[in-house]
Design a protein around this nucleic acid. Structure first.
Lengths: 216, 216
DNA sequence: CGCCTCGATGCGCTTTCCGCAACAATGCAG
DNA sequence: CTGCATTGTTGCGGAAAGCGCATCGAGGCG
């Protein structure tokens, strides 16, 4: 029985495959997303210190204990909604051409990864505003970028056949690329997303390539 | 009255003025330093999770309540020993020549500020090791660099007459410079301080100026 | 249909973190 | 050197964070 019950399971790289994933997995994602959304909403409404984890759990209809199965802290639930971000980035890097200059690889991959941002544009803008306004969020926000930075560094090291723990070059390229990304995202957020994010990233990378000379 | 009572208060930029500072201030610094040192020692010996704030306070001979008058968390006491670091950096920047390219200013000022590192060389090496080994320290460690980065950015913005919240250039130069600094410090720490830190910083800035081209 | 896996939950405990109010030491002026 | 103002220390008490553990129930799968 159950012939034709699972309608189409071809994994196309295009769509995020969020549909046929098993009820369990879908519920988990929904719970995580719900916790994140409710946290954003509550903190935006009342302020960071006026929201407890119990509040957030209640708003997302789970027990406080469950909250901690998903996030390690109140900062986390605001700043770290997507647990797979780093792995996806690694995947993108692995799939990129081998003969381009390292900085070009990082630029194009990072721009590709921006889909995740523009897909949830409003959520990102709100989150960036909260990070700007709530100092307590800064450390973990930076840590999230740092995790991506490490992936970039490893990739550059491998690509150029250098040792990331002995040679400063991969570390520098990786961190500089991430700095460009951060700067672009910060600008985008501060400007309420008026300028397209990919443009800002390209502008930042262009400046890196000039050796950061003062532009006219 | 009180003629000739204050024996010389000329603030010479050379010595850190740690001597004539009033008993109160000296005690405060001693307490802070003691909390930091004991925390480093205990965590290095037992591991981060096996040390409580109560332990650290006891080792430094103060009450647990006093700990929180100095540091906001266990991560802080490890990673943030010096509360004036950012202000000193701002001072250095303010005192630097106005006609050099922004990147040159940042490089020379940051190198000057390295005295603080080499002065307490062993402490820094230990702290860097702990940061490498204990993931929980990463967020606040990054936040400390971020605070310096903001100062750099403000300086570049002012120096070039640009608006740091509308123009991406100051943000990018500031973050790239800080990335160079971080990379150099990380390398220095990972290599147990074998290569002189200023050399590493110069190497990193040189790479930035080439636009991060692959070195031969 | 029935077993197995795994996430949700409740419980209880330790630790963090901080406001508050007394107390003690320091700084300072007369 | 003496009294007053400042300011750091401490104890108290409490809210909240964070996590190990055992249990229960829903989902996966043959």
């Amino acid at each position: 029985m159950a012939v034709g019950m699972a309608q189409d399971i071809g994994v196309s790289a295009a769509e995020p495959a969020t549909e046929r994933l098993g009820l369990r997995e879908r519920k988990k994602r929904a719970t995580r997303q719900s916790l994140h959304s409710e946290a954003l909403r509550l903190v935006a409404e009342r302020g960071f210190d006026e929201v407890t984890i119990e509040d957030i759990a209640a708003a997302a209809d789970v027990s406080p204990r469950t909250f901690f199965n998903y996030f390690g802290s109140k900062e986390d639930v605001i700043v770290n909604p997507d647990p797979d971000r780093v792995e996806r980035l690694r995947g993108l890097l692995a799939g990129d051409a081998a003969d381009k200059p390292p900085l070009d690889v990082l630029e194009s991959v990072l721009i590709t990864s921006l889909d995740e941002v523009t897909d949830r544009r409003e959520e990102w803008l709100l989150r960036l505003r909260l990070v700007r306004e709530i100092p307590a969020l800064t450390p973990r926000h930076l840590a999230a970028f740092d995790a991506m930075e490490r992936v970039l560094i490893d990739d550059v090291a491998q690509r150029t056949g250098r040792d990331a723990s002995a040679d400063i070059y991969p570390v520098l390229v990786g961190s500089a690329a991430m700095a460009a990304m951060r700067a672009a995202i910060a600008r985008w957020g501060a400007g309420d997303g008026r300028r397209p994010l990919p443009d800002l990233v390209r502008e930042a990378f262009a400046a890196l390539r000039t050796g950061l000379a003062v532009p006219s």
